[in-house]
Write a protein that binds this DNA or RNA. Structure first.
Lengths: 260, 260
DNA sequence: CCCTTCTGCGTATGACATACGCGTTATTGC
DNA sequence: GCAATAACGCGTATGTCATACGCAGAAGGG
């Protein structure tokens, strides 16, 4: 009754079907004047230019020279467009040079994390798309796979590899989100990044009570807040901690064999 | 020209002013028939019952027995309501028992992370509220402070303490978000959690190509996917890795002194 | 050659956030 | 006491969205 797909069978969620390009190609009616690719590309352009909030069906249609409702011939709902945008903007992973050169799992995983981070930074609006369940799109699977491969020489079992991959990619994502929020705050006011940081520090100094918040007070006094030039600092710091933690696990598992 | 606050001076963002309870108490007009507290409490109830998406100004007003527009006498915009909801639902931290009993920083930080996680799980909709910049509300600061205090005996410097606190709380948040998304998927379809997991595994098996995705294929074959009963597993796993990583840092910093 | 099926798209609906202004009610300065 | 003042509750209006529905025209298939 519901069998109509040209490959396989069963009912994938509509968005997945679209993402994998298994849309039933109808041979009957008039030729489509648009294409999913054009629509998604236009939506990505809008998001890159004016943020995810600017991506409305009307705006995308306008961008592509069609009427709002015609988009629904290609996309079942806006959520589906989101999925496709994510897939397109994130793209497939590049091969890891650390894997080809036979470097350690640690280098491979670090490279993998950085690559993922770069994609997110190139399209900060990706972080605003609500996540809808576990990964199942082509590129998501490809990245996942690559993460597992980075851990190939580690001696971890399959379940732990996936847990580590999940842990690292969650870290990358949440760190990027933090940066995106900061960038958004910067954009919202007209000020420069330094100006915003300084203003935040001033606000904190006003609100923090040395008695109730001795730790934060010490932080403010230490001046550690006024000089963090490197925007990569928190990322590098967190990633190192994470990798150290994974290393500890690996050592625990196989009793001291360095896999390099 | 803009000086009107009753304590301090300068212009806090409106939402912060509200969160810290420094709203100018007007002595002129009629008595307010509502209160911020009532409004926020109603909004929290709506979110808890029907999710954050159900929190509209109209709905909250109805819940509180007032008209939509009257809410704007108490709240300058919906974003402000969000901030207040977050503050109310998250609440202040309990004292850490690990701190009182003089346990290690590791136990303290683990307890802190778990406590934070519990709050998020009690109000999953908290994770849907878009984050607006760095923490500056009373409870946010209190949690931050407590995280720093958990690291008191660690020997880390102030900057590193804050980085670790940030790292851990980001981890807790992103793990909870993952669970929330899963729960949302479960709710969306009518099925049971096991049913959804099984369906996901079936989907993966259909989409994964053993040649392009050897790692994921191995995972699927290993059956590691079919039996994860413990919903805390990923949390515990990730937290252990993180704490191991922090431990490695501490050892590196002070040359081998165990702080317990 | 007509009938089925798909196309683009105009129109309509129903949420929603929020600006504006009006009548009303306390409080304060006289 | 009494008017001037400011805050209150809230009806109405505006503009933005996603999206359901249905129609008219295009293209293959029988």
């Amino acid at each position: 009754m519901a069998e109509k797909s040209s490959s396989g069978g069963g009912d994938l969620p509509a968005s997945l079907e679209a993402a994998w390009g298994l849309r039933a190609r109808p041979a009957k009616g008039p030729k489509p004047g648009l294409s999913l690719e054009r629509i998604v590309a236009a939506a990505v352009d809008v998001a890159s230019a004016d943020g995810l909030a600017a991506v409305s069906m009307g705006r995308v249609a306008q961008e592509v020279g069609a009427s709002t409702m015609s988009l629904y011939r290609y996309v079942s709902a806006k959520d589906e467009l989101y999925v496709l945008m994510q897939e397109a903007a994130f793209g497939p992973p590049e091969p890891l040079s650390a894997l080809e050169s036979g470097a350690s799992w640690r280098e491979a995983l670090a490279e993998w994390a950085s690559a993922q981070r770069d994609r997110l930074h190139a399209h900060l609006w990706l972080l605003r798309i609500p996540v809808g369940g576990p990964p199942a799109t082509p590129n998501s699977l490809a990245w996942w796979e690559q993460g597992i491969q980075a851990l190939e020489g580690s001696g971890l079992d399959e379940g732990d590899k996936t847990s580590v991959v999940l842990l690292v990619s969650n870290f990358v994502r949440s760190e990027a989100l933090l940066m995106a929020d900061l960038a958004a705050a910067v954009t919202a006011r007209g000020a420069s990044p330094d100006e915003v940081t300084a203003s935040y520090e001033r606000t904190l100094k006003r609100l923090v009570d040395p008695v109730r918040h001795p730790g934060i007070s010490r932080l403010l006094e230490s001046g550690a807040m006024s000089e963090p030039d490197d925007p990569d600092y928190e990322f590098t710091f967190g990633l190192e901690r994470l990798l150290d933690g994974v290393e500890a696990l690996i050592r625990k598992m196989d009793g001291g064999v360095k896999s390099a």
